[in-house]
Amino acid sequence: MDIDYLATVILSSLSSASILLIATIGLAVVFGLMGVINLAHGEFLMIGAYSALTATQMGVPFVLAIPIAVAVTMAIGALVEVLIIKRLYGRIFDTMLATWGISIVFYQLAVMIFGTVTPGIGMPQSNIQIGDYSLAGYPLLMIGVAALMGLFVYFLMTRTVYGMKARASIQQPEMAQAIGIESTRVNTLTFSIGCGLAGFAGAVLLPIVPATPSMGFSFVIKAFLTVVVAGPVTLTGSVLTAIGLGGGASITASFLTSVAGDIFFFLITAALLWLYPLGISAKWRRKL
């Protein structure tokens, strides 16, 4: 096996892991800062993708379609939080079932509005040459996007007043209220941001993953396994888990089959949960 091939495999695996991370971060924010598993996360991703697609079809440049997708998903997310999620805090399994219902509703609405087959948008043409091998440029760009997203969330949560309030609210909900934090508003904003991040992911990945109503299912599965394995220190935990699991699965897939990659992913997940029943970061001393 030559060095060029190895480099190609590593780069494309890193890009797969980055795509997983991009799809996961919103979920990690909502789980990490609200204790809510949002099973409709994948559908927010899908809404983001369709919003960006519709915008580009109406002539908006792709770069501007992305913020539109974020705005749409943030608005819908805030609405869902106020109408449904707010009533279910502290009841993690009820929230799971309710968001599962939301996911089904959004999926079916998408089928009714857009049909099951939609045209993709072309991937921006640029290739990178490594020896004899050529890699598409856009997926590699995702490594940078994932890094930027991670940094954005990190700064949002550690360097802003909102971020401090959000973290205080999840760590000691009662004391957060007792020192004057209006937790309900903070929660609405957090959920909305989580959904906005999903919308961003759907839009930015649109050239790689075409918009279909069922795209959410395939994404959310690995995304929320990543979050649960990550545990309480969600951001750092998710980055590591996404790179480890996503990268590992991708490498396995490139040497064997894509099913082998999936099996790798699920078995390692099970093994990690066996070793760390409360997530890998349960005993870490880190902020986020």
């Binding site: 309030k165 973290r167 760590q171 000691q172 009662e174 004391m175 007792a178 020192i179 004057g180």
Partner: peptide, 30 residues
């Protein structure tokens, strides 16, 4: 409770309940 705090009611609970994964500085600043 949040509005009581703004009316000037400070509270130091039994068992302290600081925000464990925030720095001391952040605990005060927030």
């Amino acid at each position: 409770p949040a509005r009581r705090a703004r009316h000037g009611l400070g509270y130091v609970p039994q068992g302290r309940f600081v925000f464990p994964r925030m720095t001391a500085l952040e605990n005060i600043a927030v």
